[in-house]
């Protein structure tokens, strides 16, 4: 029955805190990859080339429709079959970064589409270059409506990092399972993992909402 042991809790807490660092690092790296690669995916779908648009669109659909945990296994195990050995960290970052890049490209696409046509026309009438139009006119306006989605996926990528434990990345879940199999006690480690996730994801989600309002004010959009 219910027998929470506080001495055991204090004993394993340091290990879990260190593992939390790894989890945050994985989420941060993965997100950085996703943010940049997602923009590449989104912009690739706006080029005049129909073939490129089609290929990227289908790839994004494929990545979004299949399980991340399976993609992690795929990236980690398929390399060695062809002589390319990836470390768990590298494989994990590729898989999770690619997965969330597909999601973020949809967020960016929605944001870019939400900028009124008149803004493009005004930029043309002022003879702004395409690059300048994107970076100075369109993206600043596409950003605020994208922020909520970007924030959701930042929290999402953080919550999906436990899947990296399946290929041996020593993040929070992996450490908790290791503690469990060493001590045969699962109550404390798994409950603590849940509490640590809550303690990070809830304030982050709230912080993102505040940040979103701040950006809107800063850009004079509200």
């Amino acid at each position: 029955m219910f027998d929470w042991r506080w001495d055991f809790t204090w004993q394993i807490l340091p290990r879990l805190v260190i593992a939390t660092g790894n989890t945050l690092m994985a989420a941060g790296f993965g997100y950085a990859i996703a943010v940049v690669l997602g923009l590449v995916f989104a912009l690739a779908q706006r080029t005049p080339s129909r073939t490129l648009t089609f290929v990227v669109r289908e790839a994004v659909e494929f990545i979004r429709s299949t399980p991340l945990v399976l993609q992690i296994f795929f990236v980690f195990y398929v390399g060695p079959q062809f002589g390319l050995r990836l470390s768990p960290w590298t494989a994990g970052m590729i898989a999770i970064g690619l997965h969330y890049a597909a999601y973020l490209s949809e967020v960016y696409r929605g944001g870019l589409d939400s900028v009124p046509k008149g803004q493009w026309e005004a930029a043309t009438s002022l003879n702004l270059s395409t690059t300048r139009t994107y970076f100075r006119v369109i993206i600043p306006q596409a950003l605020p409506p994208s922020l909520a989605g970007m924030g959701n996926y930042l929290v999402g990528i953080f919550k999906d990092t436990p899947m990296l434990s399946v290929i041996g990345v020593a993040e929070l879940m992996h450490t908790a399972t290791a503690i469990g199999s060493e001590t045969y006690r699962y109550l404390e480690p798994y409950t603590l993992v849940g509490l640590i996730f809550l303690a990070i994801s809830l304030p982050t989600a709230a912080g993102i909402r505040v940040f979103e309002r701040w950006v809107r004010r800063k850009l004079g959009l509200s």
């Binding site: 009124p116 008149g118 803004q119 026309e121 005004a122 002022l126 003879n127 702004l128 270059s129 300048r132 100075r136 006119v137 600043p140 306006q141 850009l219 004079g220 959009l221």
Partner: peptide, 21 residues
């Protein structure tokens, strides 16, 4: 519908083209 750039002030709207084009 004017199509002013909403994230720039009136002055910044006017200066955008002269400076950057």
């Amino acid at each position: 519908h004017f199509n002013l750039f909403p994230h720039m002030t009136a002055l910044e709207n006017c200066m955008e083209g002269p400076v950057h084009v």
